[in-house]
């Protein structure tokens, strides 16, 4: 029997029952860290390979922001990297943390993420992260266009 009150089936992430502060910390971690150990351990070889590749790519993306922060990279390159990473993050998350929040952001309802849900989540989150970093770098005068 499906639950029609949610667009997809409800899911409980491991931290769903923690206290308010714990939940905020766990969610923050979730937004920033797409991998999960549980998913990594339980998955087949090719998934693990994919995860490893993802780690490498993430390292690349991080390095990219560091380079940008050192004023060594142009806007086009940053956007390209950030977009490429975002695509990969969608794939990684579908394997490791395949859920999104449902309803108010301060609530505790989560549901299974479909592909489009994940694209929307990662796209929106990374747009905000990207914009924040971009504005920070620009106002620090490290990135000039």
């Amino acid at each position: 029997m499906v639950n029609p009150t949610m667009p997809t089936d409800p899911v409980e992430p491991p931290y769903a029952a923690s206290g308010t502060l714990g939940l905020i910390a766990a969610e923050l971690w979730d937004h920033l860290w797409p991998w999960s150990r549980a998913a990594f351990a339980g998955q087949k070889a090719h998934w693990r390979a994919l995860q490893a590749a993802g780690l490498a790519l993430a390292a690349g993306a991080t390095l990219m922001w560091v380079l940008a922060a050192m004023g060594r990279l142009e806007a086009g390159a940053i956007i390209g990297w950030w977009f490429g990473w975002s695509v990969f993050e969608v794939i990684v998350r579908l394997g490791s943390k395949p859920y999104v929040k449902e309803g108010p952001w301060w609530g505790r309802r989560y549901r299974k993420a479909g592909l489009m849900d994940m694209v929307c989540y990662v796209g929106f989150k990374n747009l905000l992260i990207g914009a924040t970093l971009f504005i920070a770098l620009k106002s620090a005068g490290l990135l000039v266009l």
């Binding site: 029997m1 499906v2 639950n3 029609p4 009150t5 999104v100 929040k101 449902e102 309803g103 108010p104 952001w105 489009m116 849900d117 694209v119 929307c120 989540y121 796209g123 929106f124």
Partner: peptide, 18 residues
């Protein structure tokens, strides 16, 4: 539509809607 995925207040449904 994409950010609408995370709208706060959705419409109501009851179990029989399934």
């Amino acid at each position: 539509a994409m950010p609408s995925t995370f709208r706060w207040f959705g419409l109501k449904r009851k179990q029989e809607c399934d």
